[in-house]
Each structure stands twice: as structure tokens, then as C-alpha cells.
Amino acid sequence: MWELFVRSLDASIVLAIAALGELIGQRSGVLNVGIEGVMLFGATFGFIVAQTTGDYTTGFIAAIAIGAIIGLMHGVFSITLGVDQVVSGMGIWILGFGLTTYIGNPYTGPLGMARIDRIGGLSPFFYLALALIFLTWFVLNKTSLGLKIRSVGENPEVAEVSGVSVNRIRYLCVIVSGMLMGLAGGVYGLSYNPVWNYNFLMGWGFIALALVFFSMWNPFIMFGGAVLFGALWQLALSPEFILPGVMSRYLWRMVPFVITIVVLVLMSTRWFRTHWGAAKPEALGVPYKKEG
């Protein structure tokens, strides 16, 4: 049972870090629907680099670096060029899906390195994720940088007039966001599921996107959601822990996705929104062009 708990927490960590990245980007008004693509890049490059150098740290640095590059790319497309953010995000997803399939294919198979040591029985990334989540909450809500980020996400025109460089803040957020997504991919490919296969994330990026909508843009609620989803995912993988022999294992695999849709629907009802006041950034997904 403990093993199941630890595994489900491992899954939650990946989702939480990726969703945290998306949350930061969205708070500054930039929607990136291509999380899956960034994570695939992070997972694949992290995997390849770690395997060739035999060093986990280098692998994670590679994952974060490629995440930053892809994040920057999304920034150039959606901030500077003003391309529709959904189009750009979709492009990043399919670029990640296509290129990593080709690049990673010679590395198909297990990583073949000793597993990363656990600290206090839990993955070290659990503590890292907690720290990052707390840090994000602190920066967003308690610092002047956070105020700038939120103002840029709510009303860029007003932020610009009050002396905040909208594009600079958005670039910062998009790059940090890409780094976190790349890191999440690295944690997936090097710690949670260190067996490379093409498209081995199987939609986790989109689940992370759903988590951000679920979180009402609050990092702590997001983490709660990630923990619940991780447990759900792990139970669907090994249903014999609760209900042995009730359904085919393939049908169990559908359950987390069905529940994601149901939860999103509940969150979107008018009752829920008026009672809980979802704090969706006003300018989310709207390209900003400085006048003049």
C-alpha cells in the first residue's frame, strides 16, 4: 500500500510541476496548450543526455534547457509575432510529438541507470515540487514582481501605462514556464517512467492543462488536484488493490480521463463559478500589441 502511495505521489509530482509552469504562464496572460510537446522535449532530451553521459544532473539540466528554448519559441510566436496562442501551442505540441519520435527512436528502451535515491521514502522531486509551489505562490502574491505578472495577465494596457513592460514580463513568465514543463518532462522520463518510447507521455501534458483550469489559478489547489489525480492514475494502473477482477484493465485505464472531463464540467457550471469565483486572468490568450 505504501508503494502504491509513493508511486501515485511520483505521478502527482510530474503533473504538479508541469501544471505549475502552465499556471505561471497563464497568470501573465499567455496560454500554452502545447505543454505535452514541451514535456516530450524535456523527457526525450533529458533521457538521451542522461543516458549518454551517465549523469542524472546533466540530464535534468538538458531537460530544463530545452524547455526554456521551447518556452522562448512560444514567446516569440505569441508575444512578438502575435500569432494566435492556441495555434502556436498546437504547433509546439505537434513539433514535440513529431521530432522527439524521430530523435529519440534510437534510444527506445529502458534508461539502464540506478534509480534516483529516495529521501525519507519519497522522491526528492516531491520536496522540490513543494518548494517550487510555495515559491510560486509567494512570488505571485507577496512580491512586486508577482503584482506585475498578475497585472499583465489581467489588463496589459493598464499595466503598460503604469510602467510595467508587458512583453518583458510575459517573456520572463513564458521562459520560466517552459523550464518547469521541461523539468516535469525530465522527471517523467528519468524518474517516473524511465523507459523511452515514442509519445510515452500519453496525454499527461493535456491533463496538466486541465489541472490548471481546475486549480482556479491557485498553486495550492492545483497541487491538491495533482495529488488526487496521481492517486487515481495509479489506481487505474493497478486496480487489483481495491476492486480485483471487476473490469478489464483496459477499461480501468479510461477512468482517470473520464473523471477529468466530469470534474472540468462540474467546475464550469455557473453554480460553481459564482460560488467559488474562479480567478481566470482576464487577458488570457489575448495577444497584446503596444500602441503606436
Binding site: F77, V87, I94, G98, L99, T101, I103, N105
Partner: peptide
């Protein structure tokens, strides 16, 4: 290597995005 057609898929998509500009 396997996945040449997938690589094309990715490259094509991203040029399409840039050209949207």
C-alpha cells in the same frame, strides 16, 4: 531511423505557425 514521417509532421506544423504571422 524510424519516425521520418513524424519528424515531417512536426516541422511542417511549426513553419505553418510562423507563417501565420
Amino acid at each position: 531511423g524510424f519516425g521520418v514521417d513524424y519528424a515531417l509532421l512536426g516541422v511542417m506544423m511549426i513553419t505553418m505557425v510562423v507563417l501565420q504571422f
